[in-house]
Simulated assay, not measured.
Amino acid sequence: VRDLGMRLPLAALLLNRLPAELQDRVRSVNYVEKTSIYGTASHHLAARTDTVDLQVWVADGDKPLPQRIVLTYKKAAGQPQFWAQFIDWNLAPQIDNATFSVQIPDGLQKVAFAAQLPRAAPAAAKPSAKKGGK
């Protein structure tokens, strides 16, 4: 995120410190309503951080999984939104080596990202170590 200068909207969900991140960043949370997302009874919650407004719909019942997340970047020009829909959860996936192998179709090529790494500040001129020198 830092090196490429890209926003990865749901990156925090991949952090093992997600609860602490939420505790540090969220300023308020409100219960909006009980509603339905694609036929699943869900609780709609709205939260605010300093830079992002967050809405999440969580399934009601014994599997309280996220159904939808909407992020609004309230300090960015135009207040862009990111929407993610979570359906057909699989909490016991069958994973084998093929899951992590890639078959690149003929004719495709890798797109290189030009990382925007911070430039080092020019070294400041150091005063002479000699005192009273010419």
Rank of each mutant, 00 (worst) to 15 (best):
A77M: 12
L45A: 01
I37Q: 00
I95D: 05
F86E: 00
V102R: 13
V111S: 13
W83Y: 14
P93E: 06
Q103F: 13
H44R: 03
Y31T: 09
L54R: 04
A46E: 09
K75D: 15
A76R: 09
K63C: 02
D50R: 03
L18H: 01
I87G: 10
A114N: 15
L54V: 07
V29H: 05
A123Q: 15
R25W: 04
T99C: 07
K126T: 12
P9Q: 01
Q103P: 03
S101C: 09
T72C: 09
L54D: 01
P66H: 02
L22F: 06
L54T: 04
T49E: 04
F86N: 00
R68S: 02
G61L: 00
D53A: 10
P80I: 06
A76I: 10
V52L: 04
F82I: 08
D3A: 09
L8F: 03
A125E: 15
K74H: 08
L71Q: 02
P80Q: 06
D96E: 11
K126V: 10
P64V: 01
R17I: 13
A123W: 11
H44Y: 05
L10F: 03
F82V: 06
S28F: 03
L15T: 14
A77D: 13
N97V: 13
A76N: 07
P80Y: 05
A46F: 09
S28V: 06
A120Q: 15
D3G: 04
R2A: 03
A59I: 02
G39Y: 02
A114D: 15
Q55H: 08
R7H: 03
P127E: 05
F113M: 15
A41C: 08
K74N: 06
A41D: 15
I69F: 00
D60Q: 06
P122L: 10
H43Y: 10
V32E: 07
I104V: 15
N30E: 11
L71I: 02
G61M: 01
A129K: 14
V58H: 00
G132A: 13
A121P: 10
G61T: 03
Q85A: 13
